[in-house]
């Protein structure tokens, strides 16, 4: 296996969620099950079902599928936020994940303070952040607002800052979950240009989106998930046209995860 070529590899990745209706119920169940020495009836969701993927360095991969098909869980597992039930993830390089725009921004801190905070969370030193701070503010077009608390920002401004931070903290692998929906056309264009350039330098991009136009614009490979399984994987155009004809696309939004 030429692992040096690969950026991300998943092996038999499976994630089961315990369905939790209410916390106190869990406590009650726990006590009862301990008292009666019986195992709780398993009420589980299968969010990822034996996913095997190989993504090469420099690829831009779009991940599509109906709601609840496991897209966000997949990104979460790759990003080490969610622990898989079984299976392994291998990867090379620094990962930056935009699971949500501006996750970790504190509303009462200014843009600059949030840049330092986010950098520290991702794992950069102060000195490293010093180097990219101006670039981030410049890319987000927020130079004149840098000392305002982020709570006063519009959704678009927060998006710009969030995207700029995630992209400028020097990831080798960038995973984006539904991030660009609120941006205006000008900023979206800027992001697409940035992604092209980012890939040109050998970095890897994963993009989860329902915006198929964006997927077509950015990605050359596409993976369609449904019920936690990979339904198709191949060149973007092929996967997209198959997706449009699929039953899941016809009844968009009604897709529910399989229950066990």
């Amino acid at each position: 296996m030429a692992s040096s070529e690969l950026a991300i590899k998943t092996e038999n990745l499976t994630k089961r969620y315990q369905v939790i209706h209410d916390r106190p119920e869990r406590l009650k169940d726990l006590v009862i099950s301990k008292l009666t020495f019986r195992k709780l009836p398993a009420n589980q969701l299968l969010a990822l079902d034996n996913i095997n993927l190989e993504i090469r360095r420099g690829e831009a991969v779009g991940i599509i599928g109906p709601n609840g098909s496991g897209k966000t869980t997949l990104l979460g597992v790759i990003a080490r936020v969610i622990k898989p039930t079984t299976g392994e993830v291998y990867l090379s390089g620094r990962v930056s994940v935009l699971l949500e725009v501006g996750a970790g921004f504190h509303p009462d801190l200014t843009a600059v303070e949030n840049i330092y905070l986010n950098g520290a969370i991702i794992g950069l030193s102060r000195a490293e952040i010093d180097q990219v701070r101006e670039e981030i503010l410049d890319f987000a077009e927020l130079l004149q607002f840098q000392d305002m608390p982020v709570r006063t920002y519009s959704a678009g401004m927060r998006l710009r800052l969030g995207f700029a931070v995630a992209t400028h903290l020097h990831p080798d692998i960038l995973l984006i979950d539904e991030a660009l929906a609120v941006g205006d056309e000008h900023f979206q264009q800027k992001c697409y240009d940035w992604m092209d350039n980012f890939r040109g330098q050998g970095a890897t991009l994963g993009l989860v989106s329902h915006d198929l136009a964006a997927i077509r614009r950015v990605c050359d490979r596409c993976i369609r998930l449904e019920d936690g399984q990979v339904r198709s994987d191949g060149p973007t155009e092929e996967v997209l046209s198959a997706y449009r004809q699929s039953a899941a696309y016809q009844e968009q939004g009604s897709g529910e995860m399989r229950r066990r």
């Binding site: 692992s3 040096s4 690969l6 597992v77 790759i78 080490r80 622990k83 898989p84 392994e88 993830v89 291998y90 990867l91 090379s92 390089g93 620094r94 020097h170 990831p171 080798d172």
Partner: peptide, 12 residues
Amino acid sequence: SQSTICWRRQVY
């Protein structure tokens, strides 16, 4: 970061 790239297994 380019120089530190290495293949690793994610540990949870």
